[in-house]
Every structure is written in C-alpha cells, then in structure tokens.
Nucleic acid binder design. Structure first.
Lengths: 203, 203
DNA sequence: CGCGATATGTTCGATCACGAATATTCGGAT
DNA sequence: ATCCGAATATTCGTGATCGAACATATCGCG
C-alpha cells in the first residue's frame, strides 16, 4: 500500500465534522443530540463545539454525501428535527481522516508561540514577571486537570481519557520549559539579555 | 493594580495583527514590507502569515486607530504603496495584548487532541500502526528542528530563538507521550483495550 | 394553576480568513 | 534588445465561522 506523502485537501476541514461523523457511528441523531452526546462524552474539551458551526457542518456533510437524512421527526409543536445517519462514504472519510491525523503531525500555530517570538518587544523585567504569572497559572491548570482525571478514572475506562492525559502531559511540559526559560532570564546567562535591556532602557 | 480575571474581548483577535504591530515598532512600513520583515526574522514559523489576511488586518488596525497612514508612496507606475506607522494607542494595545498572552495560558484545540479523543473509532491494531508512524514522523521533525536551531545559533542571539526552542521541547514532549501510550496499548495493559478490540471485531 | 427558570433546538447575518488571480518591475540569460 | 522567471505588491470573491437571537417545551415551586 502506498501512503500518500502530501495530505489531500479535504472537502471539509472543520474538526467538528470529524467528531460529528464519529458520533453518528453510534447511530442516527439530529444535530442537537449530536452536540449533547459529544458533551456527555467529554469530547467538548478536545473539539470546539459551536452551535453556529454545527448546523453548517452537518449541512456540508450532507452536501458531500457523508451523511444523509434518516428521518424527519416532529414532536408536538416544536420545529422539525432532522435526523441524520452516516453513509458508507462518510464512514470511509472518517476512517481516512482520523488515520491521517493520528499518523501525521501538522504544524499548528499556538498563540503562546507567537507571543514568545515577539517577546523582545517588552522590557525584560516585565517579561520575567509575566512568565512567572504564567507558571502559576499553569500550575493551577495542571492541578485542575489532574483532579478531573482522578475523578473520571472511577467511572470511565482509560481508553476514553487518553486525550485528557495528553493535555496534562503537555501542560506539564510547557510549565517545565517556561521555568527553564525564566531561570536563564533571571541569571542573565542568556546571550543577548544585556543588549535587550539596554535597548529598552535607552530606546 | 487589579488584574482583570476575564480576558477582555479584543477588537482584533487575529495574531497576525499583534505581529504587525510589533513589526511597526521598528518603523513605518507598507504591508508587503511588513510581511518580508516578519519572514526575514523567522516569525513566519510561529505566526501564520497570509497575504489575504494581511491587508485586511492592517485595514482593521487602522480602523481602530492602532496604526495610521504615514505616507503614500508611488514609484514609477506601480500601484501606490501605503506606508503605515504605529500609533500610541497601537503601542499600548500591543503591550497589553502581548502581556496577556504571556501571562495567561488559553485553552486551544490542537487537532491531535481531537483525533486522540476519537481514537476508539478505529480498530486498536490500526491505531497502534498509525501512532508508530507518528512517532517516526515526530522524530524526523525534531531532528529538523534541532538542526535548524544549531545553524541559527551561529547568527542569531538566543533571545530571538526562544520560540524555536519551545517548539522543539514540545515536539519532544509529544513524542515521549505517544511512546508511552503505544507501550500501554501494545502490552494491552490499558484498561478497556480488550473491550475495544472485541467491539471492533464483532461490531 | 401560573410563573419564571432552565433545557431544547435552530437560524441568521456580520465578520473573518484566505487561495487564487492580477498586475507590475527587475535582473539576468540569450 | 528582448524574453522569461522571480520578486514585488495588492485585490477580490467565496466560503467558513460563531455569537447572539429566536422560539418552544418542560419542570419546579409557591
């Protein structure tokens, strides 16, 4: 089997679309129910669920034949609820997309990286203060994540918590790195810090 | 001084806007020149620079008074080049925004996290194969980043490379974590793996 | 029973993002 | 001289995004 080296452009790129397809694997649902299911399963911490986007995404999935209308319900006087089911093409797209995401790291642009690259625009003392604050915040965040995880272990198999464990690991990694940076900044050992300070103090 | 606990909504949220303001600190420029400067300084690895977005962003910055037209050049027959400069309000917004980004971690949604949370949709053996491939890819990526860094150390002060070091650190952290996950999956020690397999093999 | 609060569902439109197209100039090879 | 590809510089149309508004149902409680 030949693995395509360049990722092909997908017809839908919103991650929510993938989450929707996976959810519909569990059976036909209407959009709102999809959102509820995702939330109930805690997927909303790893995928941004936006009602605004949800309906558009489902529509687009239908347009491309990945889902189809399975039923149109009407209970009482409420607006109709269109129930969607996953198609064969949908299942295939889902598997392929998910596989690609797992196997291939993609370059993303976390906002903290941007901020770091622009660090020079602040006074070095200010930078140190701010990064110290970040470390504190990260510690709180990590503690929260650990706590949540402990609770969840009691009711959910680990399999369904991998992404939470990953999050925690990455939070810890970030904390560690920022601590290292702070150390170098405070010791002034980092090449270029004197120049930086001088630049900001004279202009 | 009271630190606002909730981040106030910014008039501009595109990170490119921040990068633009920081660049204009160095002096007035026209949009294209801003992009060149960012690229020359390697900022394009940490901020997504999109020509399509650039002009819109600069316009919006102007609309909100963060930059202003400093000059309109015309050389030969080319289209006019509008040269922009940072305003006082712009400098303030820049400092405040950058400070917030450094001090406060924000929840983002990296696509790999989504993929992890949906892992159960694939057969466990398939998941293992794919994650092994990811580890290989991550190793290549890390090697590349390390190489680039070595080269850059020769010509650029460390201060301007912090974001690259951060990237590398995070790549390594991710690799380590995926390796751990793989180990657990292969050993079958992870709670729930048998059920997972069974589910996929019977349907 | 009547009231507000909360949960259930969906739609809309203003804004945003960005690939691709456009248009000109410059440098170097022929 | 002239042709061509790369660099310079900007615009535009399409499509995505998402907060907020809308509308109804259900539930708890006095």
């Amino acid at each position: 089997m030949v693995v395509p080296v360049a990722a092909k452009r997908r017809k839908l790129s919103n991650p929510l679309a993938l989450a929707v397809m996976v959810t519909l694997c569990q059976g036909p649902m209407h959009p709102y129910e999809i959102a509820q299911t995702l939330r109930r399963q805690g997927k909303d911490t790893s995928t941004k669920i936006n009602y605004g986007s949800l309906y558009t995404v489902v529509q687009n999935l239908e347009k491309h034949g990945f889902v189809e209308v399975a039923d149109i319900e009407r209970k009482g006087n409420r607006p109709e609820r269109t129930v969607y089911g996953l198609t064969g093409a949908g299942r295939e797209e889902m598997t392929e997309w998910l596989s690609e995401l797992l196997a291939r790291p993609v370059k993303e642009f976390p906002i903290f990286e941007t901020a770091l690259s622009l660090l020079g625009a602040l006074h070095p003392d200010e930078a140190v203060t701010l990064l110290e604050e970040r470390v504190k915040n990260l510690e709180v965040q990590a503690a929260g994540e650990r706590g949540a995880l402990e609770k969840l272990y009691e009711s959910v198999p680990r399999l369904f918590l991998v992404e939470v464990e990953y999050q925690l690991h990455m939070t810890e990694a970030q904390t560690e790195w920022v601590r290292g940076l702070l150390k170098e900044l405070r010791e002034g050992s980092m090449l270029g810090v004197e120049g930086w300070r001088h630049f900001h103090e004279t202009g």
